[in-house]
Write a protein that binds this DNA or RNA. Sequence first.
DNA 1: ACTGTTGGTCAACGCTTGTTGGCAACATAG
DNA 2: CTATGTTGCCAACAAGCGTTGACCAACAGT
Lengths: 189, 189
Amino acid sequence: MTDNPRGRRSDATRTAILEAARERFAADGYDRATIRAIARDADIDPSMVMRYYGNKEGLFAAAVAVDLGLPGLSGLPRDTVGPAVAEHFLDLWEGNEVLTALVRVGAASQAGAERIQGIFREQLLPVARRICPDPEQVPARAALVASQLLGLALTRYVLRIPPAVDLTREEIVAWLGPTLQRYLTAPNP
Amino acid sequence: MTDNPRGRRSDATRTAILEAARERFAADGYDRATIRAIARDADIDPSMVMRYYGNKEGLFAAAVAVDLGLPGLSGLPRDTVGPAVAEHFLDLWEGNEVLTALVRVGAASQAGAERIQGIFREQLLPVARRICPDPEQVPARAALVASQLLGLALTRYVLRIPPAVDLTREEIVAWLGPTLQRYLTAPNP
DNA sequence: ACTGTTGGTCAACGCTTGTTGGCAACATAG
DNA sequence: CTATGTTGCCAACAAGCGTTGACCAACAGT
């Protein structure tokens, strides 16, 4: 029994499945990303997906386990955090397809929406708590930040509205930076 | 032959189908909103949907024919257009489910995404052209406006992130108004 | 009263989906 | 070398889907 947790013989297959799943979920959304298509991309049999991840929901859960890596931002000077957040998320979106998949599936299914709610609650809220001045306003301000960040992701990476795709990295930081800065630290309007 | 364009005997059925379709598309997205479920909601047979709208794509196209009613905004004073846009879109989102359905389906399928691109191009861009100072910057600025508006819709009406749902109308106008104003009329940063 | 058109139902089609269980090949432990 | 657990493929299942065509009932025009 090769029970050794590190280095199972099937690890290559497992990660191939996850990679293919991320690509398909990002490109096609939850319903159209079929297990058969994912298995074909990973060059294995559909039944292997079921064996390793139980069912389609389990596969999705495993494929979009995401860490935003936000805590690193809380050490920054408070008055330049807006542009820093914009840059950080640009890196995340362009680095891999997990977040695109997440938005696509979140818009398509209740389970996906709940997963995004969880990420918001457990990863964005705590950081906002350490940046915002008024503790009572933290949820509202974090929600505004999320709306602008997810909105850019939606128009640029999911809907692919041409002018949103054509925005350069510098333009995005220059425009969104002050917006996020205001949502996080400006006095209540 | 009751060829009379106004007042066909089947008009009640047709609109019942469209209403049910909008609800289902908004609640479930394109793939999970089945023709059978829509027909059940409208209390008719699935085959009627096919007869009246050809196929599922045709039904979707008919269900989300949307007019943003933006031209009315171009007569406003240029320095208060931001909050006015925010209020206008709040009315639209809360008035009916067409836009929610549109975002859900846009995120799920290529056809839906193209439809949103079309609305952006034909309804948002022309109005932005009459508000923005620099004609060359119009597409980028309109894309930024769309990102914030669609982002709020996504977090509030589709993902239903609790703090985004809890925002009051006044809070939204007070926070988004200046953002949209800046995207539309502020000098290039 | 006859006839053609329209509104609507019913049952079925072909297809794809997620999911399951059986079976062969292989690696490893004793 | 044998026994055991792991990896993988194959074929099949039941369910649900969009879609179709045959059929009946009510109506309108003449």
